[in-house]
């Protein structure tokens, strides 16, 4: 376990030293600033605009961070041959993958917490707007979406190149966000008689993560009930943890069979 934490800490430190981290943070902050300009043009819709744009900024830049930093964490160790030293020091491949994932996830979490905190501060300062408990919940749930995305990055990095990993992760994120539409398409296709494609889509629906379940942005803005607190704190995260475990298991299996030469 200590070895996993050691790799995680090292990954985190490397990521934080990476200029990409600060660049992404800067862009995210600029977008938060833009939300203020839009809010002032929106005739009384300040609250919803700051919340929507703010949550979108956190989500998109969280995704970018996990993609741009994540695709390199495994690749660089292989490219610079440092993987040999790590493996030689008694770290198993599974520990390596888990450590990399954990370090990356802590980096993304740091980013989300900083941006979420700034969003809450912005709402607190801005008149006619205020941070609601459901906003905190939305940011909390976003962490689990990012956890799955990070696991996807690590999975793809374990067997492919950085560019391909980034592309595959992005595609999975898009499909994950359109999960409900996949199901709707499949219903329509069944009505049209294209059962084969429909069942393929249904397979994708069940196999790929439904990232839309972690998106409660509209509910936050409309002050809607997002379910019981226990459900939001345990069941949603549990689904994310289970799927992440599945992805990491596949990643370790894939990485175990990888030839470093």
């Amino acid at each position: 376990m200590n070895k996993i934490f050691a790799i995680a800490l090292n990954t985190y430190k490397e990521a934080v030293r990476n200029k990409v981290f600060y660049l992404i943070l800067l862009f995210a902050l600029i977008l938060l600033g833009v939300s203020l300009i839009l809010a002032s043009l929106a005739l009384g819709q300040d609250d919803r605009i700051i919340k929507h744009i703010g949550l979108m900024a956190i989500n998109i830049f969280g995704l970018m961070l996990s993609m741009f930093v994540g695709v390199n964490v495994v690749y660089e160790e292989l490219d610079k041959r440092t993987i040999y030293t790590i493996i030689a020091s008694g770290v198993t491949r599974t520990q390596f993958i888990l450590g990399k994932f954990l370090g990356l996830f802590i980096t993304v979490t740091t980013n989300i917490v900083i941006m979420g905190g700034l969003l809450c501060l912005l709402l607190w300062i801005w008149k006619d707007a205020n941070p609601s408990p459901s906003l905190i919940m939305a940011i909390f749930l976003m962490l689990f979406e990012m956890m799955i995305v990070t696991a996807l990055v690590v999975l793809f990095s374990s067997f492919s190149t950085p560019v391909l990993s980034a592309v595959l992760t992005f595609m999975c994120w898009i499909i994950g966000r359109m999960s409900e539409d996949l199901w709707e398409w499949s219903i329509r296709l069944i009505d049209q008689g294209a059962k084969g494609v429909a069942y393929l889509l249904r397979g994708l629906y069940f196999f790929l993560p439904n990232l839309a379940i972690y998106n409660v942005q509209n509910q936050v803005v409309h002050h809607e009930d997002i379910g019981s607190l226990g459900y939001a704190i345990f069941i949603y995260p549990l689904a994310g943890i289970v799927y992440t475990a599945l992805l990491l298991w596949i990643a370790t299996v894939s990485f175990s069979g990888r030839d470093f030469k």
């Binding site: 043009l41 605009i49 744009i53 979108m56 989500n59 942005q217």
Partner: peptide, 20 residues
């Protein structure tokens, strides 16, 4: 569908556009 789950944010941009 094309909003990729950012329906609210896209809606807000359209709202600002509508006002302008």
């Amino acid at each position: 569908m094309l909003s990729l789950g950012f329906e609210g944010a896209l809606c807000d941009l359209l709202w600002v556009r509508a006002i302008q």
